[in-house]
């Protein structure tokens, strides 16, 4: 236990250092070459007439902050889902959250063109709740509960169903390309006013997540044990679902579908710091921020001046890991 705590502390400290380094890197790298020195000056001696300083302030900084926040939010939310359901495959994408949000965004794009960012966020929240509710609902109705395989299949089915509605609307009303751009995921065009919306959601969500982390640890021992230990499981679950909705809904509404961050990072973190969610949740938030920020830097570097969709990149990083899990867990599932 002592050793795990040490590992956790190291991850938090080293992780935050790496995070700051990656933030500097992300601000410096891009189509327009800017030296780290200029980055430093733009922050502490901002000069409004300097083009580089403007690029940094208007484009690179909001984008970087968004990438870090979204990565942290998705990873923390995935941790909570996995802890609460005791299901190794639980994650925003597989639990139907992303497809629900996509569905509502499609509705917004079709019926409310020119919708404001705040309202788009609201639609995405509702959609995230809808998707999660559908998958959870199937789990509640299923006689044997949701085994990992059933969860994956239920998620696939809900994704297919909502996806067919989204796509039919998108094709019929000719917004397929807009929807795909959003769906592909990315923080390339994030502005400060979007970050201003994202930040409170991240702050509230992450603080709440830390607040319930101890109860999630107890819950992850199993429903019976948790009840025996005097935990009000219903209350914790409700709080957990609320946190998941806040974190994922906000993250997805800004970044689109950024797959597998919420699946892979919690597993890696659990491997490193052990089964205590008081450590898993903060550590996976830091690691998630690092991963998405580096993925975002990579998305600019692969094929400049084009941006490779960052959601596709994280999917390609995550899939081998998912397959590894599938091969390993295959026996127990």
């Amino acid at each position: 236990m002592q050793a795990r705590r040490l590992v956790g502390t190291i991850i938090l400290i080293a992780g935050i250092a790496l995070l700051i380094f990656s933030i500097g890197l992300s601000i410096a790298f891009g189509v327009a070459d800017i030296s780290l020195n200029t980055v430093w000056n733009s922050i502490f001696h901002y000069d409004a007439t300097n083009t580089s300083h403007q690029i940094i302030h208007r484009l690179r900084m909001p984008r970087t902050v968004a990438a870090v926040l979204i990565g942290a939010m998705l990873a923390a939310s995935g941790s909570i889902m996995q802890g609460m359901t005791r299901n190794p495959l639980a994650s925003p994408q597989i639990m139907g959250v992303t497809s629900g949000a996509t569905f509502m965004i499609a509705i917004a794009l079709v019926f409310l063109p020119g919708i404001s960012n705040v309202n788009l966020l609201l639609f995405s929240f509702i959609g995230a709740g809808l998707g999660l509710g559908l998958v959870f609902g199937i789990g509640l109705l299923a006689k044997t509960g949701l085994t990992p395989v059933k969860l994956a299949l239920a998620g696939t089915a809900v994704t297919a169903l909502l996806g067919s509605f989204s796509n039919a609307m998108a094709i019929h009303f000719d917004v397929a390309r807009d929807l795909s751009f959003w769906y592909a995921g990315g923080v390339a065009n994030v502005q400060w006013d979007t970050v201003k919306l994202l930040f409170p959601a991240a702050a509230i969500g992450l603080v709440l997540a830390l607040f319930i982390s101890g109860s999630v640890t107890t819950l992850s021992l199993g429903e019976d044990v948790a009840t025996g230990l005097g935990l009000k499981t219903g209350l914790v679950k409700a709080a957990g679902v609320l946190v998941v909705l806040i974190l994922t809904g906000a993250a997805v509404s800004v970044g689109g579908t950024i797959g597998f961050v919420g699946l892979v990072i919690p597993h890696i973190t659990r491997f490193l710091v052990g089964p205590d969610y008081r450590w898993i949740i903060p550590c996976s938030a830091v690691l998630g921020g690092i991963l998405l920020n580096f993925a975002d830097i990579a998305s600019r570097m692969i094929n400049p001046p084009f941006e490779t969709p960052v959601g596709a990149l994280t999917a390609l990083i995550g899939v081998p890991f998912f397959i590894y899990l599938a091969r390993r867990e295959g026996k127990n599932i």
Partner: peptide
């Protein structure tokens, strides 16, 4: 089935 879901997601990304 599980590997299929993973590979499908990778192709979806590409």
């Amino acid at each position: 089935i599980l590997v299929g879901i993973g590979v499908n997601a990778a192709f979806g990304g590409l």
